[in-house]
């Protein structure tokens, strides 16, 4: 029997996103305290990171090892401008977007000309360089001690503090981001980037300017990470270099893989792990990366399509058992 029509599948995805996002409005009501509410906010930020990396890695098949560097670039751009120069965070957001876009363009342009692992190598180098800059540009970034005194956001004279107000703000921003990603996936460019991930040759033969499309998705995904950094820095009023180092980039890759690469819902689950696991493992925080490593190996061995793939398979099994 034929699979359901994709346009119906698309409508279902939009409906599901709407439902999930509506439910998320109830979370603050259920959250017993500010700590749990802040986990919700962290989940939004993780989702923005995992969703944007998944667009690049899962759908377009391009491996980036510097997603955390773009996240950090966005955070420091807006953080430094507002903390050190008194610039409005909203202008800081513009700077974060411009800077991440420019950096991604400069790295992507040469390294995406070639097929293979050049992007992975170039981004690895970029993340190391950015980590050094975050630490060594002490005068601006506060060095290893971190950047302090970053102001909170305010909108029309309303301060968006780290409570229900920030939750709602992140709900809007990340909701829009996930909506835009869903839009893109069902558009001409979305089809083009999914196509080139399995055959660049055939993509070219179908008139796709492979280099331009790859560069576009790389810049887009970096900008989204930069926006996540903007959220992070104005939520915490602080930024610290170790959140944006190479290990953090690898962690994001693992989060995407755990959730399920190239599936729209994978990052939702991956982000949940990203937020919950460190809390669950607080007593073993030194082993966090080890736990990530082991769970990655286990998931790749037993659920190559990630958690969302496993959930979908379970759903199909249950559906079949339900007498279809």
């Amino acid at each position: 029997m034929a699979e359901p029509d994709p346009s119906r599948g698309a409508r279902r995805s939009y409906a599901a996103l709407g439902a999930v996002w509506a439910l998320l409005l109830l979370f603050p009501l259920a959250a017993p305290n500010n700590f749990v509410l802040n986990l919700g906010i962290s989940w939004f930020i993780s989702l923005a990171l995992a969703g944007s990396l998944n667009l690049l890695m899962g759908y377009a098949g391009q491996i980036s090892l510097s997603h955390a560097a773009f996240y950090g670039l966005g955070a420091y751009a807006s953080g430094v401008l507002s903390a050190k120069f008194g610039v409005s965070p909203w202008l800081g957001l513009c700077a974060a977007i411009a800077l991440t876009a420019a950096a991604a363009f400069l790295i992507g342009w040469p390294s995406l000309k070639l097929r293979g692992h050049y992007l992975a190598m170039a981004t690895l180098g970029f993340n190391v360089i950015m980590s050094v800059m975050f630490v060594e540009l002490r005068g601006l970034t506060g060095g290893p001690n971190g950047l302090v005194g970053v102001p909170s956001l305010s909108l029309f004279g309303w301060e968006i503090g780290a409570d229900i107000r920030f939750y709602l703000f992140a709900w809007v921003v990340v909701g829009l981001m996930m909506l835009l990603i869903l839009n893109l996936l069902h558009s001409r460019m979305g089809r083009a980037l999914r196509a080139l991930s399995t055959s660049e040759l055939a993509a070219k033969a179908n008139g796709i300017d492979v280099h331009a499309v790859k560069l576009g998705v790389f810049v887009l995904s970096a900008v989204m990470a930069g926006i996540a950094g903007f959220l992070y820095v104005h939520l915490n009023n602080f930024a610290s270099p170790e959140n944006f180092d190479f290990v953090a980039s690898v962690m994001l890759l693992v989060v995407v893989a755990l959730g399920g690469t190239g599936t729209y819902w994978g990052p939702f689950l991956g982000a949940l792990l990203h937020v919950v696991l460190p809390e669950a493992l607080r007593a073993f925080s030194d082993f966090e990366i080890l736990v990530y490593g082991i769970s990655l190996v286990l998931v790749l061995l037993f659920f190559p399509a990630g958690l969302s793939g496993a959930v979908a398979r379970l759903g199909r099994l249950v559906g079949r058992g339900g007498g279809r």
Binding site: P6, N183, L184, H186, S187, R188, M189, G207
Partner: peptide
């Protein structure tokens, strides 16, 4: 979807149009 990719050169929507649907 494979064949829809074949329509790439006969359509124009870029990243912004796609993101904004």
């Amino acid at each position: 979807e494979n064949v829809m990719v074949g329509r790439h050169v006969r359509s124009r929507a870029g990243y912004f149009a796609g993101l904004l649907s």
